[in-house]
Structures are given as structure tokens and as C-alpha cells.
Write a protein that binds this DNA or RNA. Structure first.
Lengths: 215, 215
DNA sequence: GTGAGATATAGGGTAAACCCTAAATTTGCA
DNA sequence: TGCAAATTTAGGGTTTACCCTATATCTCAC
């Protein structure tokens, strides 16, 4: 019997996962945790085989940190990351932190059960969608416009510059603040326009806000 | 028996909702829809009493549009908005579009069932958290919490130009579209910057979006 | 060690935004 | 009818964004 801990702060989601698992003869939901602290506590007190971890729980950096903590502290416990994010760089970061599986939150019952069994069997689990995303992750594709609606994959610097632009700073002001040249900032601005597929700053900010890319 | 349609593109979430509802003797999940199109189709073919609508499904503007469509086309069908967003302005926009209830995605079984029964009984449902948010939404709090100035009083032309700016048009393109000179457009641009108290277009768009001045 | 990605930087140029000053016309309201 | 606001428009100028081309360095993974 594979013992599963669900770490997610949304009741409904936890219920959904549990419902999907409830038909399995081999898997049982042992713990449901709504805070990072309760995850660490339950792990210390209970034998858990697989953790289903919302990687945005409560923020992405927290989820990554928790993933790393679990993997290091409980090597026999496997982590499957759950998230709405499907960009290649996040997938890679999560795997680097020790996750053995990666599922989008629109996963199906079949996939969920299969993922749990696969990671329990000491293998990694990525479904076709995720595999395709990783396979498509080439320099050329990454640079291409995703069109509207898809959240582009921003580098840390790009994300930083985007936020500074949205605060109304000029390129020169950003250069001063980041201790780089104006040319370096312009480069990132160009990359942002290209990645969002927009012609200018106005539409960049509007689009980025709609996609929640701005803090 | 209250017939419920769940409109959300996340399987797990739909399963979760269904699981919460499954114990009720008075409520049954009749339809589960993962696209806007299937919502409209199922509504046309099936009697539905309550729609549980993810308002970010697939984007907020889509959700709002769908909410309005349902309310107008099927007046006896009540919409409960589901979302992770808890800001007062969105709540008000959703209610204006016809929703009778507003639930956060971390709702409990008790609340969910109560909300469904309440709206089915022709009343609005807001839980304590939402009520508090609405009660706290005073001009003073709104100014303080956002750190923004009040929504400025825009002339019709200014509003028009603001929207065109946010669509990425250049000043020349706007002049062509509005049958005025470039200078006229520049004048309105200057007025917008002054009224919003911002130094450039980037911050203008960000601020205007936060204040919901952009369509 | 090599290649790719991220970051930084440069030169040169044009387009566009932004600013300042000023005047004229139209519209709505008291 | 007069006045204020809205709108339109102009001339002139500076600042900033945006585009194109190119090179260099660092880091990381294989």
C-alpha cells in the first residue's frame, strides 16, 4: 500500500486528488497538509512513500525549498510536483530539487495513479505533454513568440527588468540600479518585447499584467 | 434536486467540487465543462439550476463574459463565481455581471453547499471573508491599500486614447484612427500622464489596469 | 573540453514619446 | 450670453525607446 501525503492549501484541490485516488487498491491518502509546517511535522511522524506537492505552495520558492528538504531528509520519499505552470525552466528546476514526477493540475485519474506508482517504483514520471515541453525547449523555440495567452519563459534578469519597467523607470535609471550599461538593459527590453510578442512597452505591460508576470 | 454545472478547466478541481457535493441529498452535479463552448452547449441542452464558474476560465475577461451571457440567456440559472482572487473590485465586477455568489477556491464543503442552496433560493451568497473585503472597500482604504491615487476623472477622449495606448498603437496610428492630428493625441497622452500622476506610459498602463480604467 | 544560454556591452541609427509654449474652436452649463 | 472645460492644433525641441548588427564573458551541463 503506497502511502501518500497531499500538500496543498486548497481544500477543493485536496478533495479532488483524494477522490481520484480513492478507487485505487494500492494507494491510500495518509495525510493532507495545508501548511509547510504541517508537512514537515507529518513527515517526521509518519511513514510516507509519495508526496504530492503543490509547487506554488505557498510560493514557488517555498515549494522548491520544501521539495529539496523532503528529498534530502527522506530519501525514500518520492516527490511529485503539482502545478499549473508548464514552462520548461520550472520543470527543470523542480526536478533539480529532487522531484521525481511533474503533473499539471489538470491531470487525469489515470495519470495521477500511474505517476504515483511509477515514482514509488524508483523511476521518474513525465507525461506526454511535459515530455513535449521539454523536447520543444530549444533555443529557437524559446526565443519565438508564444502569442498571447501563454506565459513566456523569462530569465531572472528579464523578470527583473520587466518589474522595473512597470515601475516607470527609464532605461538609464534601470542601468544605474542594476549596475549595468544602458545597452544591457536595452537588450533585455528587446527580449521581453519579443517573448511577449508585443510591439511596444504599453502592450508589454498590459499583457504581462494580464498574465500575472508583474509583482 | 438542484442541478449543478461545474465550469473549470482543471480536472482535479472539478473532482474536488464533485466530491464535496456528493454527500448532499439535495444537490447533484449534472454537468462538468472544461471549455467555454461546452458550457454554452450544455446550458442550451440541459436544465441547470446553478453554475459554479471559475471566473478565470480561461481568463478573467472570458469568465466575466460567460457570467454575463449565462445570466442574461438563462435568468433562472444562478451563477456562483469561483476564484482565487479576493479583491473587492473583482468581486464587484463579477456581481455586476450577474453572479449571485462568490466563493474562493479554498472554500469548505459546508460553505459550498450553503452557497448553492442560497443562490438557488434566489438570494446572494457571500461568506464572512468576502463580506469583510467588501466592507473594508472604502475610498480611504482603497487609496491606502493600493498606494495609488483615486481613479482619475477622465474625459471621454482621454479614456479612448488610454485604451488605444494599451492596445499598443503608436500616436500616429491613433491619430489616423481618430481622424485627428498627432498633436491632438499627444495632448491627451500628456493629460493622462498628469491625471494619473505618472512619469511615462509604462507606469500609466500599470496604474490604469490596477484601477480598472482599461477595457 | 565544448556548446548553449544568460548576461553584458558596443556602435550607429531612426522612430516615438515627452515637454514646453501657444492659440483656436466647440460644447455645455449657469 | 458668457465662461469654463474639452478638444483640436501648431511649432520647436529633447529625451527615450526601439532596431540592427556585432562581440565578449561567464556559467553550467554533458
Amino acid at each position: 500500500m503506497i502511502r501518500v501525503l497531499i500538500a496543498d492549501d486548497h481544500n477543493v484541490f485536496v478533495e479532488g486528488i483524494e477522490s481520484l485516488i480513492s478507487g485505487s487498491a494500492e494507494i491510500v491518502v495518509t495525510e493532507r497538509c495545508h501548511t509547510v509546517q504541517s508537512v514537515t511535522e507529518r513527515l517526521a511522524q509518519t511513514g510516507i512513500d509519495v508526496v504530492l506537492l503543490d509547487i506554488s505552495f505557498p510560493q514557488i520558492e517555498d515549494g522548491l525549498g520544501l521539495c529539496e528538504f523532503i528529498t534530502r531528509t527522506y530519501p525514500s520519499t518520492k516527490v511529485i510536483a503539482l502545478t499549473m505552470h508548464d514552462d520548461a525552466s520550472l520543470i527543470k528546476r523542480v526536478v533539480k530539487k529532487g522531484a521525481k514526477g511533474y503533473l499539471l493540475k489538470n491531470t487525469t485519474k489515470t495519470e495521477l495513479l500511474q505517476a504515483i506508482q511509477t515514482v514509488y517504483g524508483e523511476k521518474q514520471y513525465f507525461n506526454e505533454t511535459i515530455m513535449q515541453i521539454l523536447l520543444d525547449d530549444t533555443p529557437k523555440n524559446r526565443r519565438a513568440s508564444h502569442g498571447l495567452g501563454a506565459k513566456p519563459n523569462l530569465t531572472p534578469r528579464e523578470s527583473e527588468v520587466l518589474n522595473l519597467i512597470s515601475q516607470g523607470l527609464t532605461t538609464q535609471q534601470m542601468a544605474n540600479q542594476l549596475f549595468v550599461s544602458v545597452k544591457a538593459v536595452e537588450f533585455h527590453r528587446s527580449s521581453l518585447l519579443m517573448k511577449f510578442g508585443v510591439p511596444n512597452t504599453a502592450l508589454l505591460i498590459k499583457t504581462a499584467m494580464e498574465l500575472h508576470c508583474i509583482d
